[in-house]
């Protein structure tokens, strides 16, 4: 579904990604882990072309993306992204947040969009909040709305950039629950997270990124019980 090959990305003199290869299969749930500054969030942002890679290639759903020629807007519409800080639109109600892109981008008619929006809000357990503004919601609710908003574009793959890192501990569960449900429904997902319990339960594959390269890629059981790399062992000790 996503194929990244030899991805290099630098910010000025700082090389953040040093030749990353990552193939994500359809319906696969890949969890990216690593210490902060390792490049995992940058990699995720490259898959959505919020950052442009300096070298290498990205193929989305069988189509190799040329960042110079291709219409990135169209490609982004097929790749959902959930941010650490939610980034809900504060001047729009919850429902308006969800239906904004289907109406603006897909030119969906308003009644149909509303119906879709309410279905998605129901799915994340927030249909009763449709008409309130985001400022009235808790962090966990905001993130669930953000997920619904992404789903409204019917993306082929969902990217999650530390979706629970900005949440109070008691609100983390409700967001992970929604993500787990999505995974079970067969959504292709790439998740950057520090929630190891989620990784263990939901991931098909856990990938450890360290200093801009992938050093470990394994199913959760192997990853936690028999890691190959010394840095991975240290990391697991740190988080457990």
């Amino acid at each position: 579904m996503i194929i990244g090959e030899n991805i290099h990305k630098s910010f000025g003199d700082l090389e953040v990604l040093k030749g990353v290869d990552l193939h994500v299969q359809p319906q696969e749930v890949v969890v990216l882990v690593g210490v902060s500054g390792s490049g995992k969030s940058t990699l995720l942002r490259c898959f959505n072309f919020l950052e442009m890679i300096n070298e290498g290639s990205i193929t989305i759903d069988g189509k190799k993306v040329d960042t110079k020629k291709d219409n990135l807007t169209k490609i982004r519409a097929e790749v959902g992204m959930v941010f650490q800080h939610f980034n809900l639109f504060p001047h729009k109600t919850v429902l308006e947040n969800v239906i904004e892109a289907p109406i603006t981008v897909k030119k969906m008619n308003k009644d149909k969009a509303k119906k879709l929006g309410l279905e998605l809000l129901d799915k994340v357990g927030l249909s009763d909040k449709a008409d309130v503004y985001p400022s009235k919601l808790s962090g966990g609710q905001k993130q669930r709305v953000a997920i619904a908003r992404s789903l409204a574009m019917e993306p082929k793959v969902m990217l999650f950039d530390e979706p629970t890192s900005a949440l109070d501990p008691e609100l983390v569960g409700e967001v992970l629950q929604v993500m787990k449900q999505l995974a079970e429904e067969g959504m292709t997902m790439v998740v950057v997270t520090h929630e190891m319990k989620f990784a263990k339960e939901v991931a098909d594959r856990i990938i450890m990124i360290d200093q801009g390269t992938i050093i470990e890629s394994a199913d959760p059981k192997t990853f936690f019980e028999n890691p190959q790399h010394e840095r991975t062992r240290q990391f697991i000790q740190l988080v457990e």
Binding site: T73, M81, F83, L88, F89, A101, M153
Partner: peptide, 11 residues
């Protein structure tokens, strides 16, 4: 983040 969220939705 507002701009990023909007772009990520395909706007």
């Amino acid at each position: 983040g507002q701009r990023e969220a909007s772009m990520s939705l395909g706007m």
